[in-house]
Design a protein around this nucleic acid. Sequence first.
RNA 1: UCCUCAGUAGCUCAACGGCAGAGCAUUCGGCUGUUAACCGAAGGGUUGUAGGUUCGAAUCCUACCUGAGGAGCCA
Length: 435
Amino acid sequence: MANRIRIEDAAKHAGESVEIAGWLYNLRKSGKIVFPIVRDGSGVIQCVAMKNNLPEEVFESLKHLTQESSLIIRGSLRAESRAAGGFELDVEGVNILQRVSEADPYPITPKDHGIEFLMEHRHLWLRSQRQHAILRVRHEIVRAVRDYFDNNGFTLVDTPIFTPAACEGTTTLFEVNYFDDNKAYLSQSGQLYSEATAMAFGKVYCFGPTFRAEKSKTRRHLTEFWMVEPEMAYADLEEIKRVAEEFIVHVVGRVLDKKREELKVLERDTSKLEMVQSPFVRMSYDDAVKNLQANGSTIEWGSDFGGGDETILTKQFDRPMLVDRFPSAIKAFYMAPDPDRPEVALGVDVLAPEGYGEIIGGGQRLHDPELLLKRIAEHNLPKEAFDWYIDLRKYGTVPHGGFGMGIERCVAWICGLEHIRETIAFPRMLYTLRP
RNA sequence: UCCUCAGUAGCUCAACGGCAGAGCAUUCGGCUGUUAACCGAAGGGUUGUAGGUUCGAAUCCUACCUGAGGAGCCA
């Protein structure tokens, strides 16, 4: 009985008789020799079958095999410089579980396809090497995110998806029926709840899906995306910036350490990622506006950055930048004002280099009870909906804060992708709900 | 929501007012080291939908549908 192996472990089994359970990725043939290229989810390997070394029916079945047919293939494994990947399997036998019908062949061929076609076949597109590499990098990023917080005293406390009202009031919410006559909304941030759990555990993070019903149609937006949100009691803006920076350095370093092969498949220029080291570029909003004006932007103090503005800023540096102290007027009600300059808020954004823009937004929260009530009134928010949130300022309020990082934007940046839609298995976008 | 562009064979595209085409995929044939293999042959079409202009429309016009890119908003 042959030893079943995963293709990614091929190097450990050179010289052995093994079997691989997978699918036919491609087939090249030349008369009495065929090269079935097999994938098994962990990698791709070239196999070789010689007519003279195999029973007639085995050779013929391989020769006429169709793309993505499922099979278990057996043979001896050896190093082979002529094969991509460096290893090759000399076929001794095969068990074909299903031969894909030629009447309805696998739609995604090794040639070019348009994005519309690929998105309609997203469930199959995931089998291709590029998509496979992206999602493996995503997995490593998620692991690195969890490890960072788990190893630095944070407790994972996830927050609800069904929420009774807007967290921030500005962005559009997805509304759902919630029994009887009640309405619920899908969470657009766990932050307010994390402020409560931070007061219970000191340092917490939540990590889950987030929903924004914005009619945004750009390469940077999904309607459903994953966000990790740490929140820390007794933290000021400087501490939040320090953690955000250390966190990003950790995540990028981990991907470089563990996912070199995948980055190579994606043709990512890893020298750009090697530059992601402390210290990051630090700039106040004031200086960012001056910088932008000097570089041709029409931005004026008091406005948020336009799409091109982040690109202008980040293209100037080879590492991420932290921009802080935005005008309070353009930030959420819960942002703490700078005590020395109340017109600016103690918020910080982390902008990724190479034009990728904002991947983190966060800051210090308003912890003064009276000012919070004032801000809720100014923003015309229903006070009764925030009773529990106001309680956090009545019972031992402390300076605190945190940030949120969109996983998909981080994946797009680290993988060097043009569009965020490839960073999640089944993207949900404006007008894209299937497959 | 607004602006721009595009829908032709299963896929990627050509034909731009005058006979509907190529490459890939599929099938058949050839090739014992291929690397998106190559060579030969075959099958494959209501040109997104509806209307209009014209002797004649894939091609020009109108509306709609679908998709892509961008703007605003955001992670």
